[in-house]
Simulated scan of single mutants.
Amino acid sequence: MRKRHITRLVSIAAASAAGLGAAAPAVPAAAAAGHVVAPGQSIQAAVDAARPGDTIVVRPGTYRESVVITKPGLTLRGYGDRTVITPPAAGRAGQDNACAGAGNGICVLGTAQGTVDGVSVRSLRVTGFARSGVWASWTDRLDVRAVTADANGVWGIAEQRSTRSDIRDSTARSNGDAGIFVANSVDEEGGATDTGGTRVRGNTLTDNRIGFTARRVRNLSVRDNTFTANCSGVFVVGDEGTPQAGAMSLRSNRIIGNNKFCAATDRLPAIQGSGIVLTGAESTEVRSNEIRDNVGETPLSGGVVLFKSFVGAKNTDNTVSGNVVLGNRPADLADRDTGTGNRFTGNVCTTSAPAGMC
């Protein structure tokens, strides 16, 4: 019995090698069943053919298309920066789905009637799209890992109306707005939504307008990331809605030299030299971060800055503690708001506005 079993396994392995080519790297079992995409083939066609829970492996190469995922449990996995997804040439096929029409690269899309759950996007590069590299809406437990999102017109990796996401070990650089963006909604006003514990960790965010933006959301963790050469490292945005944005943790990040200049918009003044900015936030913990050499001359410049939101909502009950905040100008710590209950304790810093917070 044992001998027959071993013989059968050897036969299966040989058949798999014949189908994929002897030099092919190992792929997951689901991929061996047919979900392997090679240059010249369509990623979307593989997604359409897959069943919930399947894995699709995309081999090294450049793929000129946008990809829509609406099936739960699907994993889309490439070979790191050797797997590149970029917009198709004008007038060519691949522009006829909702993701392409919105100017995005990879879209994970649920609906108000039902989230799409447990999708994973891993180890690939998404570049050059008019809006976002990776865009998600109405998702739960989305996993984005080891993705490079660069040179996209608005956001690198972005989501709205989503819960319990894990965005980690990715690189977002040279995107038009935020490298990583988490929001309640991009097209509606309203109170902050609870993300259920979304985690943003271990990412490198550089040369964007803002490294990470949390807009009208609550209950998330931003930890162990590196922010450099953006106009602002971290921007927490709240407004007068109820519940208020906040109840989040910004911890153990490196926020160094975010001195790129970004011009004023209709909602915000110019941004330059901002480490962490809180506007209209409550009960947020800023702890154990290294925040150095963020230098500018705008109202939002400084190491850690509390600033009223564009609609006048105040920061309340936030705690800034145990951070190393040095070499930031005009101040390492700046409270430019009139909210109450904000505490600055145990930080290593030399300058503050008003004085006395170091």
Rank of each mutant, 00 (worst) to 15 (best):
R218W: 08
E159Y: 12
R216N: 13
T242S: 11
V134R: 10
A90H: 10
A136M: 15
A353C: 03
N152E: 10
V277Y: 07
L20K: 11
G179M: 00
T171E: 13
A45M: 10
G40C: 10
T213W: 01
Q95C: 04
G91M: 02
A89S: 14
P243N: 06
S252P: 11
A100C: 09
R92G: 12
V37L: 10
G156K: 10
V144R: 00
A112K: 07
G275E: 12
Q44N: 07
N328A: 02
T204R: 08
G19Y: 15
K3M: 14
A102I: 11
D293L: 14
T198L: 07
C262H: 04
A146Q: 14
E290F: 12
D169W: 15
G322M: 04
T163C: 06
A46E: 02
V154T: 12
G233I: 01
G179R: 02
I167A: 03
E188H: 11
S252K: 14
S221K: 00
F310L: 12
V134Q: 01
V325G: 08
T350Q: 15
A229W: 05
G296N: 00
P354Y: 06
E189F: 11
F129C: 10
A22D: 05
S174D: 14
R51Y: 07
Q95T: 12
R51E: 14
L278G: 10
G233F: 08
R216M: 04
A136R: 08
A98D: 13
D150R: 13
L220D: 01
D166G: 11
R92C: 02
N208D: 12
R215C: 04
I12W: 10
W135I: 09
A313G: 01
A146S: 14
V222I: 12
P88V: 08
V236D: 10
N97K: 06
S249I: 08
G312R: 03
G327F: 09
G238I: 05
R64V: 00
A331S: 05
A33I: 10
T226P: 03
G246Y: 06
V186P: 00
V200A: 05
V222Q: 02
I157P: 06
R173M: 13
V286T: 00
T284V: 12
K308R: 13
S174N: 10
D54R: 05
T350R: 11
N315A: 03
T193I: 15
N253W: 01
G61T: 03
F129P: 12
F235N: 13
F344A: 00
G196T: 01
E282C: 00
N184V: 03
D293C: 00
R122Y: 13
P88S: 06
G34Q: 07
L278E: 08
R122D: 15
T7C: 03
N184F: 05
G322A: 01
G275R: 08
D166H: 02
L74H: 09
V57F: 07
E189Q: 15
M1P: 14
S132I: 08
D48R: 11
V222E: 12
K314V: 14
C262G: 01
T83Y: 07
G105C: 06
A23P: 01
V320L: 03
R82Y: 10
